[in-house]
Each structure stands twice: as structure tokens, then as C-alpha cells.
Design a protein around this nucleic acid. Structure first.
Length: 476
DNA sequence: ATGTCC
């Protein structure tokens, strides 16, 4: 993206003022380098998003942003609850794709020589890769319960996890407004034993060590300490969520004729939020979101089982679990008004500070944790929201480093053997279902996580709590 | 991201 098109606010904040058909400005977070290296298509995409009807206040673009379907990945846009719209590209096809951080009572020395065997045991126990199926076979009635109850169903009905864990999942592991009947038959049919499966692409399960603690107080409340072994898992709503996106593209395509909406970019198709199709999409997104929460709950339980198989008496806890492809109704301060908004977070994470109804009770005085995923060889971060982000980005921050190289280019840039060697040099053991897939996710294909994190710190959106160094990774 | 083309 060209810097000369933007107005500088600070070294880390920029503004693309509204012009042409834009209804609002675009607020951009990034260092000079990050913005200059950002795909030009991101510029076109945020301009298009800013031109959507009923958009409120601004579009916020985060430093991990890159080109996506319709909306960039790494942005947040909010629409008036009544006069606004809902967009499929604004959520993403992997609905409620998210991350969970699992803490343990182990220190690095406990597992130093067992990393390989732990990752291999993960590989055996946790289905990963395209089309992977798990052991949980749901009847239609059970699937309906999963959709309506989210992670709670997994804990109560299958005994996979502790009931207290629900307090440490975004929205208690179950968003409201989920309607089973909003999902299509095709989406339901895709759920063929996919509960408790990791998936492919950038999804992973990583064994990590807490390398550095930046905020001792918050780390203590989050249950983190230096040299501690933790696991981070990144996955979403699998085929069910994806099919929901695909099917609503068709439902929306019919609806725009009815509402006489003309679309200039088919990837940016939308319907009025209050239309039957819009309401149904909202309910379907919440439904798929609950499936994703349940999915991560199952995998999280399998992680604790594996750790207890390989090493005895391991105590695991969920530090937090949060999505980064979401659609929510939230009240935000806009100017002097407080407005209920339809917040689309696409590859971006809710980052609420301090006391808030949606911050879990144990974290009321710290603010809500954010888990920023690394890219195989690189560090992950635990961050925490700051008050300023409420006004600047609707309480939103980054979700990862963000791609800087296309999947295709990444595959051509190195061989699998080179990747494996590079990772071993970094002290990371890799096990994957797909060598091609792993190449696409090579660390060289991603931005520098340190620089991306530094940007949200310098712009006062988030604060650092801890940095996690990868030891081993299972990829789909 | 995705039973990466029923």
C-alpha cells in the first residue's frame, strides 16, 4: 500500500480519509514498513468496505492485514444494527476460527526430551488434515444440541473437560442467537464426525514454552509463568462453517434481486441486516460459532489426555479461547452516542479492556486476554486489551502475524526438507499431514510477528503479557 | 479456510 495515499497520525497510525464513494474513513495501524509491504489489493478492499451502506464511524485495518475474500483478513467493520448490512466476506468462510491457549503445571525441563513423542502422540490422537474425521458420531438431535450449547455440550454430555473451563472461553463457549434451523441441510451434512478435528491450512496445535513474561500481575491471573509448558490450538468450524458461507453466498445472490441491491464486487455481496436473509445469516454464524467452540473443547480435552499419557499427573487449564472470524452485536461509543452495532471481525480479535460484561469474571481486573498465533517457527503472544482500543478499533486487535507471501509462492520458495531443517534449527519439531500444506505455512511466508505486535503496543491498542516459543507443532 | 472439482 502506498504511504502517500494516507494521512499520518503517528509513526504507527494512519488515516485514509473518506473520498469517492466511501461513507467512512479507514483507520490503519502499522509501521511504515508494514504498510509499504502490504498488498495493494488491501487498499482497494478497505475502500470498498468503507463504501458499504450503514457502515459506522470507520473501518479499522490492523497490521497483520492481507488481502482476503471481499474484506481484508485483519480488519474490523461495524454496521448500524437497523440500517446496516451483514456480509459473508466480512466474517470469513471459517466461521469462528479461533485460538485456545491451554496452560499446564509442567516446566520446560519436564518435557525437554519428550517433545517429539508428545507431538507424535498428538498426531495419533487428534485427527488433522483435509477431510479429517474424528470419533464423535453425532445424531441430528445431538448436533442440534452442540449448535445450541457449544462447548458446554462437550463437557456435560461427553465428560470432555471441566465445567469451570466455560468461564475461560469467549462468551462462555456459547454465543446467543444460534439457530439450528438457520443452517442449510448441506452444511449439516458436512458435519460427518468432524467434531474434535483440527483441519488444514493455517490450523495447528503447538507445544510451547513461556519464554518471557512482560506483565507479571496479569500473567499470574492468567495462570502463566516463565519456563512453563503450554499448548496453543488454532482451528475453526470445519466443513460446517465453510458450507454455511458457501450456501449463504447463494442465498444472498437471490436476495439482492429482491432488494434491488447492485454489487460491484461479488465478493462483497451483502443483505440488509434486518432482512429475513440477514437475520438468518446472523443466526447461522452464531450456530457455526458454537460448533467451533465445541470443536476446540474436544481437541483441548484430547491434548490433556495425550499429555497425561506421555507424562504423568499433568494438570491442564484453559487460559482463554477466542475467535477471530466473528459477527457480533456489541454496543460501542460513537461520538457522543452509544450504539448497538453489528461488528464484523475478519481475522481480528476482540480485545476488550477492564470491566465489561463479556470479559470473564476472573479477568475483570486484568482485561480480556488475546492469543496471537505464531507461524510455526515463530513466537506467539498473549496480549491484553487497552482502553484506547475501544474507541480506535471497536475494541479489536491483531490475530496473528499475517501473510506476506501467497501460498503458491511459499510452496515454490523452499523444499520440505529445507523447511524441516530450518525449523529444527529454531528448535521446533514439525509433524504434518501434508508436506505441501506445511510449505504454504512456512514462517518465511509471514510478517515478522515482533514488528506486528510492536505496532499494536505502540498504538496503545494492546499490552504485552507473555511471549511463547514453539517447541513442536502438529499441522493439518 | 474447504470432502481445495459430484
Amino acid at each position: 500500500m502506498q504511504l502517500k495515499l494516507l494521512h499520518r497520525i503517528s509513526d504507527y497510525e494512519w488515516l485514509l480519509p473518506k473520498h469517492d464513494k466511501m461513507n467512512v474513513d479507514v483507520y490503519i495501524v502499522g509501521s511504515k514498513k508494514i504498510i509499504e509491504e502490504m498488498d495493494d489489493n488491501v487498499y482497494n478492499q478497505v475502500k470498498n468496505v468503507a463504501s458499504l451502506p450503514g457502515i459506522i464511524d470507520k473501518v479499522a485495518l490492523l497490521p497483520d492485514a492481507h488481502s482476503g475474500y471481499g474484506f481484508p483478513i485483519g480488519c474490523v467493520a461495524a454496521f448500524d444494527k437497523e440500517d446496516g448490512i451483514v456480509s459473508i466476506g466480512g466474517v470469513g468462510f471459517d466461521i469462528n476460527c479461533g485460538v485456545r491457549l491451554i496452560t499446564t503445571n509442567l516446566i520446560y525441563q519436564d518435557i525437554e526430551k519428550k517433545v517429539e513423542s508428545i507431538i507424535k502422540a498428538f498426531y495419533k490422537k487428534i485427527p488433522a488434515g483435509v477431510g479429517a474425521n474424528g470419533k464423535i458420531n453425532l445424531t441430528k438431535k445431538e448436533l442440534k444440541d452442540v449448535i445450541e450449547k457449544g462447548a458446554e455440550w462437550v463437557i456435560k454430555e461427553r465428560g470432555m473437560g471441566k465445567i469451570e473451563e466455560l468461564d475461560y472461553i469467549e462468551e462462555g463457549g456459547c454465543v446467543s442467537g444460534a439457530d439450528f434451523s438457520a443452517l442449510t441441510e448441506e452444511a449439516l451434512a458436512r458435519e460427518k464426525n468432524q467434531l474434535g478435528t483440527l483441519g488444514s491450512g493455517n490450523h495447528y496445535l503447538e507445544l510451547q514454552v513461556v519464554e518471557e513474561v512482560f506483565d507479571i500481575e496479569r500473567a499470574r491471573v492468567f495462570g502463566l509463568f516463565k519456563n512453563q509448558v503450554v499448548a496453543t490450538l488454532h482451528c475453526g468450524s470445519r466443513g460446517l462453517g465453510h458450507q454455511t458461507g458457501v450456501d449463504f453466498m447463494n442465498i444472498f445472490a437471490k436476495a439482492i434481486h429482491k432488494y434491488k441491491i447492485s454489487i460491484k464486487d461479488k465478493e462483497l455481496i451483502y443483505v440488509p441486516a434486518t432482512s429475513p436473509e440477514g437475520r438468518r445469516y446472523f443466526a447461522a454464524v452464531q450456530a457455526a460459532s458454537n460448533f467451533a467452540f465445541a470443536n476446540r473443547q474436544v481437541i483441548s480435552y484430547l491434548v490433556s489426555e495425550v499429555l497425561n499419557d506421555v507424562i504423568k499427573d499433568v494438570d491442564t487449564n484453559t487460559m482463554y479461547d477466542i475467535g477471530h472470524n466473528t459477527l457480533k452485536i456489541e454496543t460501542h461509543k460513537v461520538g457522543n452516542a452509544k450504539l448497538p452495532l453489528l461488528v464484523h471481525r475478519k481475522g481480528s480479535t476482540r480485545n476488550f479492556a477492564g470491566k465489561s460484561q463479556v470479559v470473564p469474571k476472573p479477568y475483570q481486573f486484568t482485561g480480556q486476554p488475546v492469543i496471537v498465533g505464531g507461524s510455526m517457527g515463530t513466537a506467539s503472544y498473549v496480549l491484553c486489551g487497552k482502553e484506547e482500543s475501544m474507541e480506535k478499533t471497536f475494541g479489536t486487535t491483531i490475530h496473528g502475524a499475517g501473510r506476506t507471501m501467497s501460498r503458491h509462492k511459499a510452496r515454490e520458495s523452499l523444499s520440505y526438507e529445507e523447511l524441516e531443517r530450518d525449523l529444527l534449527k529454531r528448535g521446533v519439531f514439525l509433524k504434518t499431514k501434508s508436506r505441501e500444506g506445511a510449505l504454504e505455512e512456512s514462517p518465511i511466508a509471514y510478517k515478522d510477528i515482533e514488528e506486528v505486535v510492536n505496532t499494536v503496543i505502540k498504538s496503545n491498542l494492546s499490552q504485552r503479557v507473555a511471549r511463547l516459543r514453539p517447541l513442536g507443532v502438529l499441522k493439518g
